[in-house]
Simulated scan of single mutants.
Amino acid sequence: MEELGLNISHEEINDLLRKQFPKLKALMESRFPGRSFEKTLTNLKEEKFGKIQQSFSETHRLEKLLKMGKSVCKVLVKRKDFIDNQVTDVCQGTGFVLFDRFILTSAHLFDKCVEGKKLLDQINVSARFQYNDDPETNYFHFYAEKTFIDIDNELDYAVLELKPEGQNSIQNNGENVKVPPGLLNSFGPLPGNGEACLIGHPAGSVRKIDPTCIIEPEKRKQVVEDHLAPYEKTMFTIMSVVETIKSQGIECIMVGGTKADEVETYHTFMYHGASGSPVFGVDFKVFGIHTRGYTYGFRRHETSVIEYAQQLLSIFQRFVINLKKSGNDEMLEKVKEAVTENEDLKKILQVEPMEED
């Protein structure tokens, strides 16, 4: 577990257990002299969360975020049994409009639901917009086409096209139902530090907003250790938690890990159902798509030690490369036409894919 950066190893644990629990407290105190984890956490709150309060509590900023948040949708993946016509939920997530009728969401929502780039016959996907104050009646939705524009498991993203006919849940028809404006031209690079804000549908709920702060790569190890510090008197519990989050691949986002510089980390209350949420910076640039957290506990009582977002510029680059390699020139032209105001995306469009060996 040393590669995880949590200063714990199996040999150390075995040695501690052999020496019995009376000495455990002294050892843990030696790891965190003067209860340094409390000081670190206090400093984090004082330095970061005060800024969040200042930035995201300003009404003009909140109003702009809420306006951009209209592009966010709840993504529902359902399975239909052709024998008894029963429809069951597979999973729920979040997505947002790129442009026109194309939405971006997380690829892992469609595990075991896709073959190649096509949804299985019994799987249907829909997107609900304005799923806010009265979710039972006041929203509209679109069904997605069966074939993905692109799906990439490595960067965990999927691009879907919504069918043109939408349905209003109140009027039960397509009158005045339009897909909201997209966020593609608002894409930007990872900020590296400062404030951030997520908008999504955690646990399948109405749309929610969560201001947070970015945890810089060099601080991730300490943040995880601070989170685990309350378990210092229960070695069996900390062993279980560390093994659980390690098995989920948390070491890859730590300094030196394979994703350390490719993702942005933070804390958020948004767990299941929030995958695919856009992550905004204070400049209103959308820099990431919320991907996952490293969780432990039970399904209904889970806790996460840290969460992260994949950077959108990398996803856009992969998307363009895949379009070029697949020969989807029609979609590529639509993307070029849609990217009219974003210099970062224009540069990516100009780069030719490298030849494979």
Results as ranks from 00 to 15, higher is better:
K78Q: 14
S106V: 00
I123E: 01
S126E: 13
S304G: 15
K74L: 06
S304E: 13
M331C: 13
N185T: 10
G276A: 10
I149P: 00
T244P: 01
R79E: 12
V72T: 08
H10F: 09
G257D: 09
P181D: 15
L62K: 02
F148A: 12
M68E: 05
S240T: 07
V90G: 05
Q248R: 08
E58M: 10
V305S: 09
Q317A: 15
N43F: 04
E352F: 11
F99Y: 13
T212C: 13
E307L: 06
F236S: 05
E330R: 14
G256Q: 01
T40F: 14
Y271R: 11
L160H: 00
F99M: 06
S55E: 11
V241P: 03
I103D: 04
H272T: 15
I8K: 09
A158D: 04
S247T: 09
I215A: 05
M28R: 07
S275G: 13
T40G: 07
K67G: 13
I306V: 15
D89H: 05
L332V: 10
E232T: 03
M254P: 02
F187C: 07
A196W: 02
E262L: 09
D89V: 05
V159Q: 03
E232K: 06
Y131H: 04
V125H: 06
C197R: 10
V305P: 04
S275F: 02
F37Q: 13
T40V: 03
E302A: 13
P135N: 08
R35G: 05
Q222A: 07
P211Q: 04
E38K: 11
T340K: 09
